[in-house]
Design a protein around this nucleic acid. Sequence first.
DNA 1: CCCGTGTTGTTACCCGTTGTTACCCGGCGT
DNA 2: ACGCCGGGTAACAACGGGTAACAACACGGG
Lengths: 249, 249
Amino acid sequence: MMAPRRCEPGVCGKCAQPCTLGTLSRDLELDLRQLPELRERRLARGDYLFHTSGNFESLYAVRSGSMKVTMLTEDGREQITGFFLQGDLVGLDSVGLRQHVSSAAALEDTVVCELPFALLERHGQSVPRIQAALFRMLSGQIRRELSTLLLLGSLRAEERLAQFLIDLAERGVGPAECGTAIWMPMTREEIGSYLGLKLETVSRTLSKLHREGIIEVVKRGVRIRQERQLRLLAGMNPVPAARPRALAH
Amino acid sequence: MMAPRRCEPGVCGKCAQPCTLGTLSRDLELDLRQLPELRERRLARGDYLFHTSGNFESLYAVRSGSMKVTMLTEDGREQITGFFLQGDLVGLDSVGLRQHVSSAAALEDTVVCELPFALLERHGQSVPRIQAALFRMLSGQIRRELSTLLLLGSLRAEERLAQFLIDLAERGVGPAECGTAIWMPMTREEIGSYLGLKLETVSRTLSKLHREGIIEVVKRGVRIRQERQLRLLAGMNPVPAARPRALAH
DNA sequence: CCCGTGTTGTTACCCGTTGTTACCCGGCGT
DNA sequence: ACGCCGGGTAACAACGGGTAACAACACGGG
């Protein structure tokens, strides 16, 4: 992992263009120029941002790239509890604790911006907007986990993959439509770990969806071909849900 | 549902004895005498405390009885996302929103204490301890959901039931040991909905554990017979984890 | 440059766990 | 008595896991 260095406020980590909105993440609408002391960290694939039982001190906003968050089951196996893309906030599951309950690793070259939690709390005392934003972030995390819970509780492999692909698409580039290209920065095994499936099942199911003409799969790239069918499989209404973009320029 | 009435501060809803600690719930260590305006609600089996898309206004501390919280999948099926026993706090998944994202219904005769969220927020501005308690409660909810997520992601029916039973036992009466009696206020179908299993599988698996002498099942009552075996199945270390009691007197 | 090696992904075959369906019983309220 | 609900059991089907063989590709060393 490269050494942390000063973050340039108001500059996007990915394209090095100034952020006209100064929006750090979709959850925390925070003008970076108000908090000039934030540092950024650059990670390569496999680098850990934090580890289970390490001290919890900061949240991290993903500015470019992507991360996985993993937990250990009591019998020692590892399971992925979430993927975090550009604009997402990592580390919320350990708020209020001394130590992290999960580990976070980069899936590819990734830049994150460090937000010391004590700093946020301190600002929260005086700025009610930050206070409210913290509650929104925490409860947003709760709801993301609840929807994963619904997915794992009742959906079959095909349906899980369909929902996963639509979620990835809409978190990345906006409404998932026919022709929308999705980049999956994670391996089949990582997808399986997150969706409660074995990697072979992930592979099989993606192949099946490809055979049926619903999607087109080339390695880690997926293109949606039949949006309606995909949404049908995912158990969704055919109407795409509006979702805020990650970072606006 | 019976009409809400004034709650008697410092008096336990179950045994009508004064609470010597004044502890409302294990999450929110709050002296009831500081907030004399709290009201309680009495529910019978099946009564709803709140509904999806109803206005979110309060959290509820379960003083006696038990509740289930359910969500609707996008295709209309209902799934239980959590059971809440004496001392638990219901409603955290909608914090920061206008409307509830879930519904809560009583599993048996139940008494809850209403905590208007606006009141908590107001107190949180001035009393940092309440502020911190709110964060702890939210992140505690996150972690409970994460452990359910691990369960649904990788465990088989037997393992899920084992973990479920141990969790129920330890949330109720303390460390789960040989001889510990567990009361399950929910139906087999509700257990199945929560654990991602069909009710027949729940039934089959409980019977199997009974046949093997690990537990004893009489309707909704379960007695642990071989604690080690049960913990082994649940993928836990044989050492019982210390866990705070719900309400101390 | 070629080659060996390790990683990731695909596919095929078999089989175990779980879902499905059906029917049973017992308790309870009407 | 009757129907309804919760619960138990059995037979069958299907989904997904286990295993293995193999292809594609990146990487590093000779």
